[in-house]
Design a protein around this nucleic acid. Structure first.
Lengths: 168, 168
DNA sequence: ATAAACTTTCAATTTATTTTGAAAATTCAA
DNA sequence: TTGAATTTTCAAAATAAATTGAAAGTTTAT
């Protein structure tokens, strides 16, 4: 396999992975492209490489910036903006965890707390089962949240080392 | 808030959460419905509750069974099938992790290994950056995979207890 | 064997999501 | 200022994903 095919395969794979985790295929591909670019790319270069429109490229780059995975780069003497991705994959993973925690876990909790306030007959089986489910979910999410919060505070190798000792 | 509204909110919330994690909204809602049902439900009951067609209900129930989250239940004297969901949310979480590991991590590895075999000039910056990205991803995924594998072998409380000691 | 009860399949349709491209807005050098 | 370069927006179009419903398939009681 030569470089162009390998690159294509990588863009494909990252795009597919993204979409099975609720991230749009194109956004994941823009990210993949920046991940393997030695130098920052302009919007035009992203458009050309991925054969996407200007609007699409712009929106996905902005979203990646909002996710904290891509950064704007200034280039001396150039008017246009360039973009580079964080290349340290552990940092990327931590950042994604951090963002998803913020975007999803907090709102989820608030809705679940809300649902638990359901009024009515506490002895009704349906009520009980609903409250039971919501309470259980809160418990698991709370613990997962705790674990992830700790995990992102540790270095990659320290984390794995600690886990290894723990589970040996 | 009365029961019907609380239930609706729960189905909504679980559906939305699912779709932001790459699981179809309806599949997540069928799961949510079974999670809060004191008794197993038939396909008809699922259709009625969620206002979906027979084909849709059938397919999503099958998928949930494939994911190991829902089970077929036989009811004495009844011809039709009933379905119940695993109610222990920690077991649900473990099962989802187990399935995603199997469905995604293994195939991902095999593609990444493939890409690393790219032929050509090892000193070319683009080659290097591609191989670097792929190698780094493999490293992080390998470690996450290890951690998850261990995590699903432990009891919920044991896991959190151990983590707590570890990070105190 | 028959037929009613029930489940599965899948082409056609509907709905949701993504993408485009051109206009509007912004930035900046002269 | 002006206007060229660049970025952003967003309604319309294209594409992808989910859904329907009816026909085909299967199971089971008689």
């Amino acid at each position: 396999m030569q470089y162009p095919e390998a690159k294509e395969k990588f863009l494909q794979t990252w795009g597919t992975l993204g979409s099975s985790w609720g991230i749009s295929r194109t956004m994941a591909q823009v990210h993949a492209l920046l991940l393997i670019s030695p130098d920052p790319l302009s919007t035009e270069e992203v458009m050309d490489e991925l054969k996407i429109s200007r609007g699409n490229a712009n929106m996905n780059i902005r979203d990646l910036i909002d996710w904290g995975l891509v950064f704007k780069e200034l280039k001396a003497g150039e008017r246009k903006e360039f973009f580079r991705a964080e290349k340290d994959i552990w940092k990327v993973a931590k950042q994604i965890i951090k963002e998803r925690r913020k975007r999803e876990i907090e709102p989820l909790f608030s809705v679940l707390e809300d649902i638990k306030q359901v009024e009515g007959d506490k002895n009704n089986k349906k009520h009980q089962e609903l409250i039971n489910a919501v309470t259980n979910i809160e418990g698991v999410v709370e613990k997962a949240d705790f674990a992830l919060e700790k995990a992102i505070k540790l270095d990659e190798n320290a984390l794995v080392g600690a886990l290894f000792k723990l589970f040996k």
